[in-house]
Design a protein around this nucleic acid. Structure first.
Length: 274
DNA sequence: TCCTATGTTGTATG
DNA sequence: ACATACAACATAGG
Protein backbone atom coordinates (compact mmCIF):
# COMPACT_ATOMS: atom_id res chain seq x y z
CA UNK A 1 0.00 0.00 0.00
CA UNK A 2 2.71 2.39 0.80
CA UNK A 3 3.59 5.75 -0.69
CA UNK A 4 5.09 8.77 1.03
CA UNK A 5 2.44 9.31 3.70
CA UNK A 6 1.71 5.64 4.42
CA UNK A 7 5.43 5.01 4.88
CA UNK A 8 5.65 7.92 7.31
CA UNK A 9 2.77 6.50 9.35
CA UNK A 10 3.98 2.90 9.30
CA UNK A 11 7.47 3.98 10.38
CA UNK A 12 6.01 5.16 13.68
CA UNK A 13 4.60 1.73 14.47
CA UNK A 14 8.01 0.87 15.93
CA UNK A 15 8.08 3.95 18.15
CA UNK A 16 7.36 1.89 21.29
CA UNK A 17 10.75 0.26 20.76
CA UNK A 18 12.78 3.48 20.61
CA UNK A 19 15.37 4.02 23.32
CA UNK A 20 15.52 0.33 24.11
CA UNK A 21 18.01 -2.42 23.47
CA UNK A 22 17.46 -5.37 21.15
CA UNK A 23 18.20 -8.61 22.92
CA UNK A 24 18.22 -10.57 19.71
CA UNK A 25 17.27 -10.63 16.08
CA UNK A 26 15.54 -13.25 13.97
CA UNK A 27 16.07 -13.23 10.22
CA UNK A 28 14.36 -15.10 7.43
CA UNK A 29 16.25 -14.31 4.24
CA UNK A 30 14.01 -15.22 1.34
CA UNK A 31 13.68 -14.07 -2.24
CA UNK A 32 15.26 -10.65 -2.73
CA UNK A 33 14.40 -8.97 0.54
CA UNK A 34 18.01 -9.10 1.82
CA UNK A 35 19.54 -8.74 -1.63
CA UNK A 36 21.44 -5.56 -0.86
CA UNK A 37 22.81 -6.48 2.56
CA UNK A 38 24.40 -9.39 4.37
CA UNK A 39 22.03 -11.13 6.81
CA UNK A 40 25.02 -12.56 8.68
CA UNK A 41 26.19 -9.04 9.45
CA UNK A 42 22.79 -8.12 10.87
CA UNK A 43 22.83 -11.24 13.01
CA UNK A 44 26.29 -10.28 14.30
CA UNK A 45 25.77 -6.57 14.97
CA UNK A 46 22.15 -6.07 15.99
CA UNK A 47 21.95 -8.14 19.18
CA UNK A 48 22.61 -5.81 22.11
CA UNK A 49 22.22 -2.67 19.99
CA UNK A 50 20.05 0.20 21.14
CA UNK A 51 17.33 1.53 18.83
CA UNK A 52 17.80 5.29 18.91
CA UNK A 53 15.56 6.95 16.34
CA UNK A 54 13.81 6.57 13.03
CA UNK A 55 13.05 8.66 9.98
CA UNK A 56 11.35 8.31 6.61
CA UNK A 57 12.29 9.82 3.27
CA UNK A 58 10.51 9.02 0.03
CA UNK A 59 9.36 5.40 0.51
CA UNK A 60 12.45 4.51 2.53
CA UNK A 61 12.54 4.12 6.30
CA UNK A 62 15.67 4.44 8.39
CA UNK A 63 16.23 3.07 11.89
CA UNK A 64 19.35 4.33 13.67
CA UNK A 65 20.97 2.15 16.28
CA UNK A 66 24.04 2.14 18.50
CA UNK A 67 25.89 -1.14 18.49
CA UNK A 68 26.86 -3.01 21.64
CA UNK A 69 30.55 -3.00 20.74
CA UNK A 70 32.97 -0.86 22.84
CA UNK A 71 33.19 1.78 20.10
CA UNK A 72 29.41 2.17 20.01
CA UNK A 73 29.37 1.88 16.25
CA UNK A 74 26.46 3.60 14.54
CA UNK A 75 24.15 1.21 12.72
CA UNK A 76 21.81 2.16 9.89
CA UNK A 77 18.92 -0.19 9.23
CA UNK A 78 16.89 0.63 6.13
CA UNK A 79 13.49 -0.86 5.37
CA UNK A 80 11.46 -0.48 2.20
CA UNK A 81 7.90 -1.78 2.21
CA UNK A 82 7.60 -2.64 -1.47
CA UNK A 83 3.95 -3.26 -2.29
CA UNK A 84 2.77 -5.15 0.77
CA UNK A 85 5.31 -4.55 3.54
CA UNK A 86 4.20 -3.96 7.13
CA UNK A 87 5.75 -3.02 10.44
CA UNK A 88 4.15 -4.21 13.62
CA UNK A 89 4.75 -4.66 17.31
CA UNK A 90 4.04 -8.14 18.57
CA UNK A 91 3.89 -9.49 22.11
CA UNK A 92 7.05 -11.40 22.99
CA UNK A 93 7.08 -15.16 22.61
CA UNK A 94 4.75 -15.54 19.65
CA UNK A 95 5.91 -17.78 16.81
CA UNK A 96 7.24 -16.27 13.60
CA UNK A 97 4.66 -15.84 10.85
CA UNK A 98 5.02 -16.96 7.27
CA UNK A 99 5.72 -13.51 5.81
CA UNK A 100 8.12 -12.30 8.55
CA UNK A 101 11.54 -11.22 7.34
CA UNK A 102 13.10 -9.44 10.28
CA UNK A 103 12.16 -9.61 13.95
CA UNK A 104 13.85 -7.48 16.61
CA UNK A 105 13.26 -8.86 20.08
CA UNK A 106 12.88 -6.64 23.14
CA UNK A 107 11.89 -9.26 25.71
CA UNK A 108 12.46 -6.94 28.67
CA UNK A 109 9.66 -4.81 27.29
CA UNK A 110 7.61 -7.87 26.40
CA UNK A 111 7.58 -7.22 22.67
CA UNK A 112 9.13 -7.79 19.28
CA UNK A 113 9.37 -5.38 16.36
CA UNK A 114 8.39 -7.15 13.15
CA UNK A 115 8.97 -6.39 9.48
CA UNK A 116 6.82 -8.60 7.26
CA UNK A 117 5.94 -8.58 3.58
CA UNK A 118 4.10 -11.48 1.98
CA UNK A 119 4.79 -10.38 -1.55
CA UNK A 120 8.48 -9.89 -0.82
CA UNK A 121 9.11 -6.80 -2.93
CA UNK A 122 10.35 -5.09 0.23
CA UNK A 123 14.03 -4.51 1.06
CA UNK A 124 16.28 -4.60 4.08
CA UNK A 125 19.43 -2.47 3.87
CA UNK A 126 22.21 -2.14 6.41
CA UNK A 127 25.30 -0.11 7.09
CA UNK A 128 27.72 0.19 10.02
CA UNK A 129 29.77 3.36 10.53
CA UNK A 130 29.56 7.07 11.21
CA UNK A 131 28.68 8.16 7.69
CA UNK A 132 25.20 7.93 6.22
CA UNK A 133 25.09 5.22 3.55
CA UNK A 134 24.35 6.14 -0.05
CA UNK A 135 20.96 4.43 0.02
CA UNK A 136 19.89 7.01 2.60
CA UNK A 137 21.99 10.10 1.86
CA UNK A 138 21.32 9.84 -1.86
CA UNK A 139 17.53 10.15 -1.67
CA UNK A 140 16.30 13.18 -3.61
CA UNK A 141 15.12 16.19 -1.58
CA UNK A 142 11.51 15.86 -0.41
CA UNK A 143 8.83 17.40 -2.59
CA UNK A 144 7.73 19.36 0.49
CA UNK A 145 11.22 20.86 0.96
CA UNK A 146 12.50 24.20 -0.39
CA UNK A 147 14.90 22.26 -2.63
CA UNK A 148 11.96 20.99 -4.68
CA UNK A 149 11.87 24.05 -6.89
CA UNK A 150 9.88 24.91 -9.97
CA UNK A 151 13.14 25.15 -11.90
CA UNK A 152 14.15 21.62 -10.88
CA UNK A 153 10.81 20.24 -12.05
CA UNK A 154 10.94 22.21 -15.25
CA UNK A 155 14.45 20.96 -16.09
CA UNK A 156 13.47 17.41 -15.29
CA UNK A 157 10.43 17.52 -17.59
CA UNK A 158 12.50 19.00 -20.39
CA UNK A 159 14.98 16.17 -20.15
CA UNK A 160 12.10 13.64 -20.28
CA UNK A 161 10.32 15.47 -23.08
CA UNK A 162 8.88 12.42 -24.84
CA UNK A 163 7.77 10.46 -21.79
CA UNK A 164 4.16 10.64 -20.54
CA UNK A 165 3.58 12.74 -17.42
CA UNK A 166 2.36 9.75 -15.46
CA UNK A 167 5.61 7.84 -15.95
CA UNK A 168 7.74 10.81 -14.97
CA UNK A 169 5.83 11.55 -11.76
CA UNK A 170 6.71 8.04 -10.63
CA UNK A 171 10.46 8.67 -10.98
CA UNK A 172 11.85 8.71 -7.47
CA UNK A 173 14.98 10.67 -8.43
CA UNK A 174 12.84 13.81 -8.79
CA UNK A 175 9.49 12.94 -7.17
CA UNK A 176 10.58 10.95 -4.09
CA UNK A 177 7.70 9.17 -2.39
CA UNK A 178 5.19 9.73 -5.17
CA UNK A 179 3.47 6.48 -6.19
CA UNK A 180 0.57 5.43 -8.31
CA UNK A 181 -2.30 6.99 -6.40
CA UNK A 182 -0.50 10.25 -5.61
CA UNK A 183 0.53 10.67 -9.25
CA UNK A 184 -3.09 10.29 -10.37
CA UNK A 185 -4.23 12.72 -7.69
CA UNK A 186 -1.65 15.34 -8.66
CA UNK A 187 -2.46 15.16 -12.38
CA UNK A 188 -6.19 15.32 -11.69
CA UNK A 189 -5.81 18.44 -9.54
CA UNK A 190 -3.48 20.06 -12.08
CA UNK A 191 -6.00 19.22 -14.83
CA UNK A 192 -3.31 17.51 -16.89
CA UNK A 193 -3.92 14.34 -18.90
CA UNK A 194 -1.58 11.58 -17.68
CA UNK A 195 -0.53 10.69 -21.24
CA UNK A 196 0.60 14.23 -22.07
CA UNK A 197 4.26 14.36 -23.15
CA UNK A 198 6.39 16.20 -20.62
CA UNK A 199 7.94 18.41 -23.25
CA UNK A 200 4.56 19.73 -24.40
CA UNK A 201 3.62 21.56 -21.23
CA UNK A 202 3.36 25.34 -21.12
CA UNK A 203 5.22 27.15 -18.32
CA UNK A 204 1.86 27.74 -16.61
CA UNK A 205 1.10 24.00 -16.72
CA UNK A 206 4.50 23.12 -15.28
CA UNK A 207 3.83 25.56 -12.50
CA UNK A 208 0.48 23.92 -11.75
CA UNK A 209 2.07 20.49 -11.73
CA UNK A 210 4.74 21.67 -9.32
CA UNK A 211 2.23 23.34 -7.02
CA UNK A 212 -0.17 20.38 -6.91
CA UNK A 213 2.69 17.97 -6.24
CA UNK A 214 3.66 19.95 -3.16
CA UNK A 215 0.04 20.35 -2.07
CA UNK A 216 -0.92 16.68 -2.41
CA UNK A 217 2.20 15.51 -0.59
CA UNK A 218 1.73 18.00 2.26
CA UNK A 219 -1.95 17.13 2.68
CA UNK A 220 -1.34 13.39 2.49
CA UNK A 221 1.36 13.70 5.15
CA UNK A 222 -0.97 15.75 7.35
CA UNK A 223 -3.89 13.32 7.00
CA UNK A 224 -2.66 9.80 6.23
CA UNK A 225 0.81 10.35 7.69
CA UNK A 226 -0.67 11.25 11.06
CA UNK A 227 -3.83 9.14 11.33
CA UNK A 228 -3.66 6.57 8.50
CA UNK A 229 -7.08 7.76 7.42
CA UNK A 230 -7.96 7.98 3.74
CA UNK A 231 -8.20 11.45 2.21
CA UNK A 232 -11.74 12.94 2.00
CA UNK A 233 -14.32 12.30 -0.72
CA UNK A 234 -13.32 15.52 -2.49
CA UNK A 235 -10.15 13.70 -3.57
CA UNK A 236 -9.86 11.53 -6.67
CA UNK A 237 -8.39 8.91 -4.34
CA UNK A 238 -11.85 7.93 -3.09
CA UNK A 239 -13.25 7.33 -6.58
CA UNK A 240 -10.47 6.04 -8.78
CA UNK A 241 -10.92 2.30 -8.29
CA UNK A 242 -14.71 2.27 -8.13
CA UNK A 243 -16.47 0.78 -11.10
CA UNK A 244 -18.61 3.50 -12.56
CA UNK A 245 -16.58 6.02 -10.57
CA UNK A 246 -17.36 9.67 -11.13
CA UNK A 247 -15.08 12.72 -11.01
CA UNK A 248 -15.78 14.56 -7.75
CA UNK A 249 -15.48 17.91 -9.52
CA UNK A 250 -17.14 17.47 -12.91
CA UNK A 251 -19.48 14.63 -11.88
CA UNK A 252 -18.63 13.01 -15.22
CA UNK A 253 -17.35 9.42 -15.57
CA UNK A 254 -13.72 8.62 -14.80
CA UNK A 255 -11.57 6.62 -17.19
CA UNK A 256 -8.88 4.01 -16.61
CA UNK A 257 -6.05 2.73 -18.77
CA UNK A 258 -2.45 1.64 -18.51
CA UNK A 259 -0.19 4.68 -18.91
CA UNK A 260 3.49 4.69 -18.08
CA UNK A 261 3.21 0.99 -17.29
CA UNK A 262 0.70 1.48 -14.46
CA UNK A 263 -3.07 1.50 -14.22
CA UNK A 264 -4.05 5.13 -14.32
CA UNK A 265 -7.33 6.90 -13.59
CA UNK A 266 -8.28 10.34 -14.84
CA UNK A 267 -11.24 12.57 -15.51
CA UNK A 268 -11.59 13.09 -19.29
CA UNK A 269 -13.87 16.06 -18.79
CA UNK A 270 -11.12 17.81 -16.84
CA UNK A 271 -7.85 16.37 -18.18
CA UNK A 272 -7.50 16.77 -21.95
CA UNK A 273 -4.85 15.38 -24.24
CA UNK A 274 -4.52 18.27 -26.64
C1' DT B 1 -8.17 -19.75 -15.58
C1' DC B 2 -6.95 -15.07 -15.88
C1' DC B 3 -6.50 -10.61 -14.20
C1' DT B 4 -5.32 -7.22 -10.92
C1' DA B 5 -2.57 -5.06 -7.00
C1' DT B 6 -0.47 2.40 -3.55
C1' DG B 7 7.04 -0.74 -6.24
C1' DT B 8 11.60 -1.21 -8.11
C1' DT B 9 15.00 -2.88 -11.26
C1' DG B 10 17.44 -5.24 -14.93
C1' DT B 11 17.53 -5.46 -19.76
C1' DA B 12 16.57 -4.31 -24.48
C1' DT B 13 15.93 -0.83 -27.85
C1' DG B 14 16.09 3.59 -29.87
C1' DA C 1 25.74 7.91 -22.49
C1' DC C 2 20.88 8.86 -22.19
C1' DA C 3 15.95 8.21 -22.57
C1' DT C 4 12.20 5.09 -22.90
C1' DA C 5 9.51 0.75 -22.46
C1' DC C 6 8.58 -3.44 -20.39
C1' DA C 7 9.26 -8.04 -18.29
C1' DA C 8 10.42 -9.90 -13.96
C1' DC C 9 10.17 -10.30 -9.17
C1' DA C 10 6.15 -13.22 -5.62
C1' DT C 11 1.69 -13.77 -3.59
C1' DA C 12 -3.26 -13.29 -2.70
C1' DG C 13 -7.74 -12.30 -3.96
C1' DG C 14 -11.61 -11.21 -7.18
Amino acid sequence: MPELAEVEFIRKRWNPGLGRVLAGVRLHPRAGVFKTCDPAELARRLPGARLDSSAAAAKQMLFRLTAADPAGTQLWLGLHLGMTGELSVRPAGLPDARADHLILDQPAAGRSLVFSDFRMFGRVQFHAGPEAPAWWAGIAPAVTSPAFTLAAVSDFLRRRARAPLKAVLLMQERFPGIGNWMADEILWRAALHPARRCGDLSPAEVKKLHRETVWVAAQALAITGETFEDPPASWLFQHRWKDGGVCPRTKKPLERATIGGRTTCWSPARQKLA
